[in-house]
Design a protein around this nucleic acid. Structure first.
Lengths: 345, 345
DNA sequence: TTGAAAGCGCTAACAA
DNA sequence: TTGTTAGCGCTTTCAA
């Protein structure tokens, strides 16, 4: 299976085709001037030899690796996966390839990862969130490439931003719950210390509750992120034993929300009759479960796509920038039956 | 934000530290002989300059890029995400980095992707499944690196294999359903033509049904993969209108199974009383939903981990191979309340 | 323990 | 339209 012979190089192809290596190089870049017949002959020779370009060597020489580094908190999350899809698809047209890494929701891990990724000399880097360790931030600032922070509106951005306010998203949910008659509302999220975006959602919850003169102390912590469905269920159990008269729960994500809802089903608590439940993320499950769960759509795919556009814009050296340095992607409120009886099918 | 000065090179660090570039190179490889004080001075100089190694140049020179290429059908799937986690974590100790790409369950796309990935000169490549286009297979065979096929037991393996029989997994489910008294059993899956693993599960279903003398024609197609929860729900609706007396459904994945179950809830069909539902993949949702769904655990993370071990084994040039060329990871049957009343909580 | 020379596979820049 | 020269940033190999 493993032939001992080395992989052929451009010179091998050149010899096979009877041209110089440079001509082979041109033949592989579609935009270069090469005689059409020569190109055909070269491509045929390459095919005969099973030649595959070495884009590492190419990148070293041209100073264009074709990589865009991307960090996400977890690879096992449909939201971030959608953002990565948006990036991949948006970047593909320009021949840019995503180099992905995940941080496990951990800033030290992010620092390690960013260092490793920069080692590959990406042409741009996309990070999730706007909070980093000092060293990580310094590396990003000194990398000399476009940096895009996403999924957040950082107070002090490094460079470009494509994101939304997690706090405002929570506020939107609170407003909806209050408008539909609830006042005893709880927030179910992760430990305040680790998940910055989850923490922002919690902050937004507290701010909005207090601004409406409501009690904002019903806060249940479900452990470090990511919060699983199971943890959502357990947290709901704790919530109901501590504050049994709770009328609504704002969950840090749809996964926690769905877990909480299953716990309600097990306990015979009617949703939304006895307790209303809201999530975050517009995961498929919140749309299809019974009853469907009210959620916030952060437009994950779109965030990726806009980040890709911004990168392409920054990398094409014309000064005719068509994208903004800071792009706000306004999250949408999806009102569904878990908070609003008239929505019931 | 973007300093115009170029990123510093090893020579810059060497000058700053008053040594030769070669010594700097050694200082960064922990296993090389360098005076401890010299190393400290070099690392300090590197820090002062904000130096980050160029592993592309390093890879070109040493012929070791540190990449392991990995292709999965979809990035938005918890099962494949777990396999990637296993790979990433298993490879990390040896300083190998996963270079990930996804194929959208499409073999032409896989061919394109494999070509692109080989361009980066990975030291090994892991692919999902054992069916590829001819060109793709040829590229893999000629790449001169270890190739691991996963999530399948290919009839004609390219090189190493870490997987399981999708057909046998289905058969296991059928056996369980028949043993618990069902005979009118349906299979709910994707279009037969596209998703090879889904097709294998369907094949296993038919084989097992027929071997038990049961009718194996209740087959509903839910479109091209991936099958969403929504498609699972729609397919169940079609199933019940075509064969209303169906007693059990074997679904191609837990996501389809959960969608199907929500449809049952909407129609007032009792699960498992009226109809039993089984899935595949041991996704979290099948464990927590009400009732929990019987599933097959393919041990996704373990597949990734074992593939990583195999790669490390193959790459470390000692002939003392501790791993098998073909590793079978036996899937586990998770019997839960959606097929078995006594399991009800 | 350190350094000098050569070159990994490719492309920019120039020349023909 | 094609070729030549030089060199990208690093490591291998050999010598000191």
């Amino acid at each position: 299976m493993k032939p001992p012979k080395k992989t052929p190089t451009m010179s091998d192809v050149a010899r096979e085709a009877g041209v110089s290596p440079m001509t082979v190089s041109r033949a592989f870049k579609s935009d270069a001037y090469v005689n059409e017949e020569t190109r055909k002959a070269i491509l045929a020779a390459a095919d005969r030899l099973g030649y595959v370009m070495d884009s590492m060597a190419s990148g070293l020489s041209s100073r264009k690796t074709g990589f865009v580094a991307v960090t996400i908190p977890s690879i096992n999350n449909a939201n971030f996966a959608d953002t990565v899809r948006g990036l991949t698809e948006g970047l593909q047209a320009k021949g840019l390839q995503v180099l992905l890494g995940y941080t496990n929701y951990n800033q030290e891990e992010e620092e390690r990862l960013v260092r490793q990724l920069l080692t590959r000399r990406p042409e741009a880097i996309v990070v999730t969130g706007g909070t980093h360790t000092g060293k990580c931030r310094a590396m990003l600032e000194n990398a000399g490439i476009p940096v895009i922070e996403t999924w957040d509106i950082p107070a002090d951005p490094i460079d470009s931003v494509v994101g939304f306010s997690n706090a405002d998203a929570s506020a939107k949910i609170v407003a909806h719950l209050v408008e539909t008659g609830r006042t005893r509302i709880a927030f179910l999220g992760g430990d305040a210390s680790r998940d910055t975006r989850g923490f922002d959602r919690r902050r937004g919850f507290i701010r909005e509750m207090e601004s409406r003169g409501l009690d904002a102390t019903r806060l249940v912590e479900a452990g470090p992120p990511p919060i699983s469905m199971r943890e959502g269920a357990d947290a709901l159990a704790r919530l109901m034993s501590r504050w049994p008269d709770t009328e609504a729960v704002v969950c840090v994500s749809d996964l926690a929300a769905f877990g909480a809802m299953t716990e309600c089903q097990r306990r015979g608590l009617a949703v939304p009759g006895t307790i209303a439940i809201a999530g975050f993320g517009a995961y498929e499950i919140s749309d299809i479960c019974v009853p469907p769960i009210t959620s916030i759509d952060p437009h994950c795919y779109r965030i990726g796509l806009l980040a890709a556009r911004r990168i392409i814009d920054l990398l094409s050296d014309g000064p005719d920038s068509e994208t903004e340095s800071h792009t706000l992607v306004e999250p949408g409120l999806l009102v569904r039956a878990s908070t609003f009886s008239d929505c019931n099918p």
